[in-house]
Amino acid sequence: MGVEAYMAVAGVLFALGIVCIISRRNILYVLMGVEMILNAANINFVAFNRYGNGGMEGRMFAIFVIILAAAEAAIALAIVLNVFHLFQSVRPSEADILRD
C-alpha cells in the first residue's frame, strides 16, 4: 500500500467532515464534522511520517493534534450548551445574530 491510499482515505474523510458540518442542522454535527476533519489530518500526518525519511515530526504533530482536539471538544461542548441556553435551540441557523 502506498501513501496515496492513505491520502485518499484522508481526503474522503475530510470531505465527509465538511459535508457533515454544512449539511446537518444540529450544532452537534458541526462538532462531529470537526473531529472527522482532524482525524483526516492526523491520518495524513502519520502516513507521511511513515513513508517519509523516518523522522519523529509527523507522529509528534499527530499527538499534539489529538491533545488540541481534546481541548477543543471540551470547549466546544461548553459552547454548545451555552448556545442552547441562549437561543433555546441547537440549530446553527438560529444562532445568526452575528449578522447584525
Partner: peptide, 8 residues
C-alpha cells in the same frame, strides 16, 4: 469512511 457516512 463508513462510520462517517453513517454519521451523516
Amino acid at each position: 469512511l463508513g462510520g462517517s457516512l453513517m454519521c451523516i
